[in-house]
């Protein structure tokens, strides 16, 4: 039991009727670290965040945020939050929104530094409805950090953003972490967890099926997907080096490879009748299917 942990969760369970949303979750966030909670839609990420915010009554277990019950005023004063797919009142400006939220905290940052940290300088007179998706999301980020929190919850903060906006947002998170703020980030983008997190917890059907550094997780889940058309059957490619899985999807054959360059070299040497070849990152959904098919009963546990 770490006394100074920002968040400590033990044996947390929550059911909605027959659906077990969270099952026996142990979880810790230490000061200053970025922890990513990675999971598909419906894995229980939002239920978990809501339990930490005191917005969900959990069935059993213990949850402490800065040593207090979730939702306690002292806990709320030390945390900032970005919730999923929120919209704020359209008719107020960035400046008005930030000033209002700053007034909720005991020692808020000056407006200028909030704008700077959220990369919103020069936009303070813009109304919410005149902002791009990325700017709106950075305004939510600004509201989360304006009170100088020690911990920030970000529930899928970059869903629906284009690549550049996502990068901008990542920079804001990195800067925040460099200043010593702990971050809990939920996401279903493997790449996002990879570039940002010190630690990743994999949430699968309501329980944490894997924990570790990005390197540890990726070596288990990761790799590339090689996709092409071929007259052959998927099974014929199983013998290629580093192929962990092969299957037919529509007209295409899909191989999952832990070392794509190596696999490709052998594939192209061996097989001439290949068309429409593409190589992409394995999506988390694919990785999950892979993971659950591979070991449905005994989840892999990485020692941390």
């Amino acid at each position: 039991m770490t006394i100074n942990a920002c968040v400590s969760v033990q044996g947390l369970s929550k059911s909605y009727g027959d659906v077990r949303a969270l099952q026996n979750i142990d979880f810790i966030i230490n000061p200053g670290e970025i922890v990513a909670l990675l999971g598909t839609n419906g894995a229980g990420k939002t239920t978990f965040i809501n339990s930490l915010l005191g917005r969900v009554k959990y069935d059993s277990g213990s949850v402490k945020v800065f040593g207090k019950a979730p939702g306690h005023l002292d806990a709320r004063r030390r945390t900032g939050t970005v919730l999923q797919s929120t919209k704020m009142p359209n008719t107020l400006t960035i400046k008005e929104h930030i000033e209002l939220f700053s007034s909720y905290y005991l020692n808020p940052l000056p407006l200028e530094s909030v704008l700077e940290k959220a990369n919103l300088v020069g936009l303070e007179q813009r109304r919410f409805d005149a902002l791009s998706g990325g700017q709106q999301q950075r305004l939510f980020f600004a509201l989360a950090i304006c009170g100088q929190p020690e911990l920030v919850f970000l529930d899928e903060p970059t869903v629906g953003l284009d690549v550049n906006s996502r990068r901008d947002f990542w920079n804001c998170i990195r800067q925040l972490s460099a200043e010593g703020c702990a971050v809990l980030l939920t996401t279903h983008y493997l790449e996002e967890a990879d570039v940002l997190a010190d630690r990743i917890s994999l949430l699968n059907n309501g329980s944490i099926s894997m924990e570790g550094t990005p390197e540890q997780i990726k070596s288990h889940l990761g790799g590339k997907r090689i996709r092409f058309r071929s007259p052959h059957k998927p099974e014929d490619f199983n013998t290629l080096p580093d192929v962990s899985q092969s299957r037919q999807r529509g007209d295409y054959i899909e191989l999952q490879s832990t070392h794509a360059e190596h696999t490709l070299k052998h594939l192209l040497n061996r097989e001439a009748k290949i068309t429409d070849l593409t190589v992409t990152e394995v999506s988390l959904e694919d990785a999950f299917i892979h993971l659950t098919e591979e070991s449905p009963t005994t989840p892999y546990q990485e020692a941390v």
Binding site: R76, T86, M88
Partner: peptide, 16 residues
């Protein structure tokens, strides 16, 4: 509107 947009939830998560 504020309930459905999640704005009320965000305010409840803040120390307001």
């Amino acid at each position: 509107v504020e309930k459905d947009h999640g704005w009320l939830a965000l305010k409840q998560a803040s120390p307001m």
